[in-house]
Design a protein around this nucleic acid. Structure first.
Lengths: 156, 156
DNA sequence: ATTAAAGCATACCAATACGGTATTGATTAA
DNA sequence: TTAATCAATACCGTATTGGTATGCTTTAAT
């Protein structure tokens, strides 16, 4: 499946609402209402977003949340990392953890290349892009010219 | 973390051994010995590889496994799909499952673009590439010219 | 035909991760 | 001072995953 967590997905949804709101601060209640997410879930999401510096929080009465930077400056990579930690496809790649399987494991180092490519993909797409389908299609067209035998998978 | 399963990683390790062996058939015992993986684990891995058509099995005495195609024809996308099913970052993208969160969820459709990009990345890299670090570095250099602000992450 | 080598299928268990929820505390504008 | 609002922590049930065990089927070699 190669999936990302639901929280990450929620994070994007929330960021979208904040982008929509612009300078206006949104409370957790506002966000819950706008997105349809449960309140405690929203809290959890907001914590990750604040901790990662993507969103600024103001406490106290009439407080709320707003984006810390412009949507064009918020990369999907940032969002994914905020919720899932560093992008590391394999365990070996994450820490320099010695694995007990033999020399074949030297291959794992090679996932690093794929890691890099995927990281680049996520770094290319910003919140602004994802809010604008046209821009996105353009990205897909431009970034990687298709090789002949590529099979496009599971685009619902 | 955006990780893939360990089994997928093991799968690549096993495929590497099979590529090394060439025309020679390897038994589960051989594979376990070469890779250091436990025998039951090897069985599980082989089942997935056979089911997906990447590897051919010959049963009976003097049987064993061999690659179904040349290493250059085995894409990482195939391997990932063999173990993890279709690449679908979000749940919404997987089936046309109606989610209960509001219109903001239309965003999820936009993950589709990223989905496509990542799928393309995985389709570009073959078993042959991953066995050859030089080739791989070349891929990284060629495929996606870096934009200025890209931060390379966690390459151990 | 028999036998032994080898793959195949299934089921089970433990550990971990994840999503979801609740509760209490800290801050700040009005 | 007070009420609104974010912050932090802790808890729990479930789902997934990795790992293991067991018994069955196929097939080459003798």
């Amino acid at each position: 499946m190669l999936k990302i967590g639901k929280l990450t997905d929620y994070g994007v949804v929330v960021l979208n609402e904040l982008a929509q709101a612009g300078a206006l601060k949104l409370s957790t209640d506002d966000i819950a209402g706008l997105t349809g997410l449960a309140l405690p879930t929203v809290r959890k999401v907001m914590k990750a977003l604040v901790d990662s510096g993507l969103v600024m929080a103001q406490r106290g009465a009439r407080g709320g949340y707003r984006l810390a930077r412009a949507p064009g400056q918020i990369r999907m990579l940032d969002v994914v990392q905020a919720f899932e930690g560093p992008v590391a496809l394999t365990e070996c790649a994450a820490d320099d953890h010695q694995c007990d399987i033999t020399a074949s494991c030297s291959l794992s180092a090679n996932w690093g290349g794929i890691n890099q490519l995927i990281t680049q993909v996520l770094a290319r797409v910003t919140l602004q892009d994802i809010r604008n389908p046209e821009r996105q299609e353009q990205l897909v067209r431009d970034a990687l010219p298709l090789t002949s035998f590529i099979e496009l998978v599971n685009l619902s």
